[in-house]
């Protein structure tokens, strides 16, 4: 053994070297998002303090918080907030429930399972515009199959896309149809990650299928379901195409969510400033929901004693 003086050691002491490598790997993606998401966002923020109009976009003047004052003082904006929340609640609950049930059905063997799974995930692959086309045709007042079916069942006919009492339902149904497969695939993936020996252990311990579900499956499923719920929620907040192309926000504004409002203000009323302010408030709503999610998640983790 060699023992040396500590003076040497002091000199040989080195800081952990700074490395550029991670920045080289992540830099491109970060710059990309700064350019194509953050810069436009800041520009939108800037726009929201002006009275810019579509027809003469350079003539906008700064008007301070006037746009926001106007929005927060108008019933129309709050109506679109409520519409957004209703649309989100129904699509999230509907797709989560249906997607989870589908995943449980598909997870075990039954005759024709492979075919059933293929068909059940297909809606995810259908382009939104095609979804809209076929649902408009199904919902068609005079020739649609929806009315043919309700009439045959003796429930009478409805204006699925024209009657304000059914507009939201129709949009929600089409959305749920389209997004459920995503939930199903993710839940299926989570179910398949439950270790087989856990099932066996509970079986040996004599647990019935309800307690197996509660003790084994649910703990694996809940974190996944929470994340999927969050994703589904923030995606619902910003979902535009399916609503816009199905109803354009109608009938009588019952499906005018915040993003539809943004688009209509910008391109139908050509009020770019007001549209940007509306969008900003919508974004704020998403941020609040996300923050709530993370608080709940942290509390849940603390309860389970997980340090995440």
């Amino acid at each position: 053994m060699t023992v040396t003086t500590s003076a040497r050691t002091q000199r040989a002491t080195r800081r952990r070297r700074f490395s550029w490598t991670p920045y080289l790997f992540i830099g491109l993606a970060v710059l990309y998002l700064l350019l194509f998401a953050v810069v436009p966002l800041l520009k939108g923020l800037d726009l929201s303090f002006t009275n810019t109009r579509l027809l003469n976009p350079t003539a906008g003047k700064y008007i301070g918080f006037d746009n926001y004052d106007h929005l927060l003082g108008s019933g129309a904006f709050f109506k679109s907030v409520v519409t957004t929340l209703v649309y989100t609640a129904f699509t999230v609950v509907g797709s989560l429930a249906l997607g989870t049930v589908s995943a449980f059905v598909i997870n075990r063997f039954f005759p024709g399972r492979i075919l059933a799974r293929a068909v059940m995930v297909m809606p995810w692959a259908v382009p939104t515009v095609a979804v809209v086309l076929v649902f408009r045709w199904i919902y068609n007042d005079s020739t649609g199959v929806a009315n043919a079916a309700t009439a045959a069942l003796g429930l009478g006919e409805r204006g699925w896309l024209t009657d304000p009492s059914y507009g939201m339902l129709s949009v929600v149904l089409a959305t749920v149809w389209k997004v459920t497969p995503f939930v199903m695939l993710v839940v299926l993936a989570a179910l398949q990650s439950v270790p087989e020996d856990l099932y066996e252990a509970t079986k040996i311990d004599g647990a019935d299928s309800y307690s197996t579900f509660k003790l084994v499956v649910l703990p694996f499923l809940l974190p996944t379901l929470r994340v999927v719920a969050l994703l589904m929620t923030i995606w619902s907040f910003r979902r535009f195409e399916i609503i816009w192309l199905l109803t354009g926000g109608g009938p009588v504004d019952v499906t005018t969510t915040i993003v539809i409002d943004v688009y209509r203000q910008a391109f139908n009323n050509s009020q770019l400033g007001l549209a940007a302010a509306t969008g900003m408030l919508g974004l704020l709503l998403s941020l609040i929901v996300t923050a709530v999610y993370f608080v709940v998640e942290q509390r849940a983790n603390k309860q389970n004693g997980v340090n995440a």
Partner: peptide, 17 residues
Amino acid sequence: TDISSGELRFDGVAVND
């Protein structure tokens, strides 16, 4: 793994870095 302090030498040559 980085060496936090001290020196590692192969044949008398420091190889820390």
